[in-house]
Simulated assay, not measured.
Amino acid sequence: MTVTVVTGNPKPASRTLTAGVMLAEQLTGSAPDHQIDLVEFGAGLLGWGDDNVAAAVKTVQESSLVVFSSPTYKASYTGLLKLFLDQFAGGTGLAGVVTVPLMLGAGPAHAMAPELTLKPVLSELGGTCALPGLYLLDATYADGPELAAYASRWKPVAQALMALEA
């Protein structure tokens, strides 16, 4: 079972990345095998054929579970994450991968953003999107009860799905 966190925050080593790692750890009981901080790819995401981006796509496709994390930007996920997701073939690019949408934001106004913006894209790419999206306040994500409550509720489902996809 391979677990990966993909983060589309334009700031390196962000709270969004940390939240993604925390969620992956709580859903699986161990640290993720891979952390892909998309800001590190820079202009490589703007075209096709970048070797580092292609390697990251392959890592995601070979994963059992991927947490896709993004800050909320203009009520949606970032363009950085969109550029990366554009590298996957529609309908099959995430086939066999359990995907978990996670977004952080400054306030509760965009709490449905993971469900309404990120989850449909992951589904369109063929990801198994059985878990609901998680929205966390960026000021309290590490200390608040929401992440732990989500993981407690959905860990058995995530693990069962990963076993089925294996």
Rank of each mutant, 00 (worst) to 15 (best):
D33K: 08
A163V: 06
D138L: 05
L161S: 01
G79A: 04
K74L: 13
M103G: 00
G42A: 06
A158N: 01
T7R: 07
Y141L: 05
L164R: 06
V121E: 06
L94C: 00
G90F: 10
A75T: 12
L137P: 01
D33Q: 10
L46R: 12
D50A: 04
A55C: 11
G133I: 05
L147S: 03
A13Y: 14
D143Q: 14
L164T: 10
L17S: 14
P32F: 00
L81Q: 03
G79L: 06
L81D: 02
D33C: 04
D37L: 06
V53S: 02
L122W: 03
Q87T: 03
A75L: 12
T92K: 08
G93Q: 05
T128H: 11
L83S: 09
V53K: 00
T117K: 12
S123H: 15
A13K: 15
L83E: 10
A139F: 08
T28D: 10
V3F: 09
P114W: 01
V66R: 08
L23M: 07
E62D: 15
A13P: 13
K58S: 13
Q61V: 04
F84E: 07
T7V: 15
V157P: 00
A31P: 06
T99H: 01
A13G: 14
A151N: 09
G29N: 10
L147R: 00
G96P: 02
V97C: 02
D143C: 02
T18W: 11
E62Y: 02
A149C: 06
P156W: 02
E165F: 01
P12S: 15
L23R: 10
L38Y: 09
N52D: 15
H110I: 00
A31D: 13
L80H: 01
